[in-house]
């Protein structure tokens, strides 16, 4: 009767349209979270006592159910994508802030001292030394944030047609269509895996300076 990827019209999108929407609703919040987390984390690095309270706040925000967020946000942003994405962005902070703070703090003291002694100002030192060296830790945080965000987008179905693959799951359950259930669950899993793989690739691309075990023959191994 119909192809594997044919969607009922009430879902308003084709299958790949839903996948695209899902991706957008999941990743834009993480990107927004990163933009907030970077300065926030830098503040926590510079003002040490600020870090624990900031962590508590992000944890408490993470504990608020998205439904509660929606109830408040609907008054302002309606039944829109934005309403789904704002809580997701807030949730990503709980992973991203500590990832960046710990990553930046893990930059060796002597590297920082050397940078200062060579005449790096604080901004240049942050951008050219601390952030690049913290990149692996930040990307590790991004991986967790992205995967969790991709799974959380589904709750968007609570405010109508904003759950992307979540709506498909809902429809599959409601109308007893296992095909839709499988497409939704499988699609979400593939999406999460693919985004994770892209981020791993990004890390490899950005950090050729990381020891990579047997892949790169090190001088030390060759001589010792």
């Amino acid at each position: 009767m119909s192809g594997l990827f044919d969607m009922p019209s009430y879902l308003e999108y084709s299958y790949f349209g839903l996948v695209g929407l899902h991706l957008r609703e999941a990743l834009i919040p993480v990107l927004a979270g990163l933009l907030v987390a970077l300065p926030l984390a830098q503040l926590c690095v510079r003002v040490r006592w600020l870090y624990p309270p900031v962590l508590w706040v992000t944890t408490i925000l993470y504990a608020i159910p998205s439904l509660a967020f929606f109830v408040v946000l609907i008054d302002y942003t309606g039944l829109s994508e934005t309403t789904v994405m704002i809580p997701l962005a807030v949730y990503s902070l709980v992973v991203l802030v500590p990832a960046i703070v710990d990553g930046v703090r893990a930059v060796p003291q002597e590297t920082l001292a050397a940078a200062t002694a060579m005449g790096f100002g604080p901004v240049r030192r942050y951008l050219q030394v601390q952030l690049p060296i913290a990149a692996p830790a930040i990307i590790a945080g991004l991986r967790v944030a992205c995967v969790s965000s991709i799974s959380l987008v589904s709750v968007g179905m609570l405010i109508g047609n904003q759950g992307a693959l979540g709506n498909m799951l809902d429809a599959g359950l409601k109308y007893d269509q296992p095909r839709l259930v499988w497409l939704s669950v499988g699609g979400t899993a593939v999406l999460a895996t693919a985004v994770d793989a892209v981020l791993i690739g990004l890390r490899l691309l950005l950090t050729p300076w990381m020891p990579r075990g047997a892949r790169t023959p090190a001088v030390k191994e060759a001589t010792g």
């Binding site: 060796p108 002597e110 590297t111 001292a113 050397a114 940078a115 030394v129 690049p132 060296i133 990149a135 950090t207 300076w209």
Partner: peptide
Amino acid sequence: QNAGLFQH
């Protein structure tokens, strides 16, 4: 000490 090189 330990050179403090920029590892990146």
